[in-house]
């Protein structure tokens, strides 16, 4: 075949640069997690890490498969309830309780995903909203969730029977490890053979089908994985906050995770983490302004969409021509 090449080749392999940038970003993140409890209130950092993991799970879908779930709080909330119940009523140690919460959310992900992924775009989003409303209703009515009261005074217990999580420092290390595990799981998924197919589906689904891939199964697997990781965030949060409440299954929570991901930068690994910290910080430090928090959040959101569409990390990465 003799097809001539006229233009000079752009054969620069950017992957090496990306790898280096990611290694640095990861080191910085770990460093900040280590230093944070000496600077800020550890409980606040732990909660923020849980939300950051939740946003990472959401980002796996919107950023890499182009699926907008508007009901992701159902996975956060259900796992939170199941974990809290298992720890408090059944007296399970925290790791098992968390595992049970993750399993519940993953199962919910398989069932709701199997029905939702048949639709695309706004219809997919609306079906996820419908399911999350059902789960919300279930959590209001089910006896074990205690309705408006939620599950309070969840014992933190000894992780694996060894590490006493009621010690705030041990708890902090535990949460940091869970977060890093979840974060790396998302990163690995995206950078796996499976992730390659997901990205191809995001770019051109009919083409992926024409190459012989059953794209539905890939989308369902991604949806269930995302549900499981959101569950991990919710279950861990129940141990940290020692409660499970309706807030975590509410529609507002599903909206908040969209905000976190968009502000930080969807389709980037670090964006959702930074976005989560920004949103949680705003809620925390602006709490004195009461109702105005929502207004300020709204303004930040609008500003983000107008000024940096790719989110904070997305814009930085685009400017430096790397992918983070």
């Amino acid at each position: 075949m003799s097809v001539r090449l006229e233009a000079p080749a752009i054969a620069a392999d950017a992957t090496a640069r990306d790898r280096r940038a990611n290694a640095i970003a990861f080191a910085v993140m770990v460093g900040l997690i280590v230093l944070a409890p000496f600077v800020a209130y550890p409980f606040f950092i732990m909660q923020a890490l849980c939300f950051a993991l939740f946003a990472c799970a959401f980002n796996l879908l919107i950023g890499y498969v182009n699926l907008l779930s508007l009901g992701h709080a159902m996975f956060l909330g259900l796992a939170s309830y199941v974990c809290a119940h298992a720890a408090k009523v059944w007296g399970l140690e925290p790791v098992s309780a968390i595992a049970l919460g993750v399993a519940a959310s993953a199962a919910l992900g398989v069932v709701t995903g199997a029905l939702a992924i048949r639709s695309i775009g706004i219809y997919f989003a609306m079906i996820t909203v419908a399911f999350s409303q059902m789960v919300y209703f279930f959590c209001v009515e089910a006896p074990f969730t205690h309705g408006e009261d939620g599950i309070q005074a969840v014992p933190q217990g000894r992780a694996l029977g060894l590490f006493d999580l009621s010690n705030p420092w041990i708890l902090y290390v535990f949460v940091a490890i869970v977060f890093l595990f979840g974060f790396l799981a998302v990163q690995r998924t995206v950078n796996s053979p499976f992730g390659e197919i997901l990205k191809a589906i995001r770019e051109n689904e009919p083409r992926v089908i024409s190459l012989g891939y059953r794209s539905m199964q890939y989308k369902l697997a991604a949806f269930s994985l995302s549900a499981a990781i959101a569950g991990l965030a919710g279950a861990t949060k129940a141990i940290v906050a020692q409660n499970a409440s309706l807030t975590d299954v509410s529609f507002a929570m599903s909206g908040e995770v969209v905000l976190m991901t968009l502000v930080g930068g969807m389709g980037t690994f670090y964006g959702p983490v930074i976005g989560a910290f920004i949103v949680v910080s705003m809620q925390n430090y602006l709490a004195q302004y009461g109702e105005w928090v929502t207004v300020i959040q709204g303004v930040v959101f609008v500003a983000c969409v107008l000024v940096f569409r790719r989110g904070i990390v997305g814009e930085l990465a685009a400017r430096a021509r790397i992918s983070l």
Binding site: R188, N191, S192, E196, I197, L211
Partner: peptide
Amino acid sequence: LENVRIALQRKRGDSFDFWRSKSAL
């Protein structure tokens, strides 16, 4: 390269291995 590789990946069968690094490709 990645475009072509997506198609070549099919010979591996289904690519549901999310736990493996893409260096497997």
